[in-house]
Design a protein around this nucleic acid. Structure first.
Lengths: 212, 212
DNA sequence: TAGATTGTTAATCGATTAACAATC
DNA sequence: TAGATTGTTAATCGATTAACAATC
């Protein structure tokens, strides 16, 4: 086990289970087995069972898991049972895309405001969220006790934006920029690494089509 | 070793090395050691050396690697030495963000066109790329021998869009939707899984702030 | 009872890390 | 020569997978 208590790959798979479960709930299914979840996601049943066990839930042999309980167990395990407020830093098209992403509600994420340094954008809306000037970040984040910032600024100002967010009291940075951020030890950074993702795609394609 | 020949984590780290190397090249540094790269990225030197070895390059003991050679070795290894044309399916704000992402040039990715089914968008531009109707996809992809499609449609039409892309001859799908895609065995799918990423962030935050 | 599934314990697999001789 | 670094071989670590008794 890692120092963290739960394998990171397990944490990453849990949301996909949630999606299957919500589908099952919609179809009014009371029980679901690890096997059924595994088939839906092309995983091994044993892996699903091991992952689910990490959330603390226990199933009924021969039957499976209570769908509703399992949903609650996963949401609670991930900290998605009550929503967390977040801000978007960078009101460009990526910020706009994320501000407009309805799915975040299910993930316990509530975007309350956006910030930018472009005077032309201040006061405008990003999918219904007001865009503030970054100078107001410290005040607003402090008063609202916001813990999460979504970084969608250009890469060359990402570090500055991160510094500002940390000064404002942000504890978690969801980093959509290509920049590797330097932050104090107690700050959590989760990077959505497009270059890494594209590298995997490229390499797999290359293997299949040596001409590529 | 996996069936694939190279550890996926290694492939994912290589682009970050590239960034450090391009910085070093900009500063006209001729050599760089694995140790220096490791420090810049907060990794272990041995891991960097192991990763670099996978690209086939060999360094000089006591000195390091030739920066220019190393850049070429990584780019070539990832298939980024010559660009691949790609299309964007879904001309929403996420598609717009990706179409406008200048960084892709470095990653060997060239976005040539966008597709949408909204008549109001057809003929317009997405960051300089013309938006075509999805009915034209088969013709255009076929004639231009495009291998990669970037999926930025709403989740509920992602499978349809993927089917269409596959019919058109696309070999690799870069999936930005929350939908798990079902595709023929020879099609590569790389998913940018926001829910998985957010789950990791949430869980790490929860560990640090049990109140959260 | 027969069939399905869970959850535990053990085995395997793959990636990371350590140790160190060889080299510049 | 002394110090730094590579690249190889071995050890460790962590995650996945297998096997199977217990349960419904």
């Amino acid at each position: 086990m890692n120092k963290f208590g739960v394998p990171i790959p397990t944490i990453r798979r849990l949301p996909s289970y949630l999606r299957v479960l919500q589908e099952a709930a919609k179809e009014s299914k009371e029980y679901i087995s690890g096997t059924v979840i595994a088939n839906a996601l092309q995983l091994e049943p044993i892996q699903v069972r091991k992952d689910l066990a990490m959330t603390g839930i226990t199933g009924r042999p021969g039957v499976g898991f209570v769908v509703k309980d399992l949903i609650l167990a996963i949401e609670s395990f991930l900290g998605w049972h009550n929503t967390h407020d977040a801000i978007i830093i960078g009101a460009g098209s990526l910020g706009d895309a994320l501000a407009g992403y309805e799915g975040f509600g299910e993930y316990g994420l509530n975007i309350v405001a956006a910030f930018d340094n472009n005077p032309l954008k201040i006061g405008k809306q990003l999918h219904g969220k007001t865009i503030f000037h970054i100078d107001q970040m410290i005040d607003l984040v402090g008063r609202m006790h916001i813990l999460i910032a979504i970084l969608t600024v250009p890469g060359h100002v990402a570090q500055d934006a991160a510094n500002l967010a940390v000064m404002a009291g942000i504890k978690g940075l969801w980093n959509f920029t290509p920049t590797k951020l330097e932050v104090p030890g107690h700050i959590i950074v989760e990077k959505v690494d497009l270059a890494a993702s594209l590298a995997v795609l490229s390499k797999k394609l290359e293997r299949d089509f040596h001409s590529l």
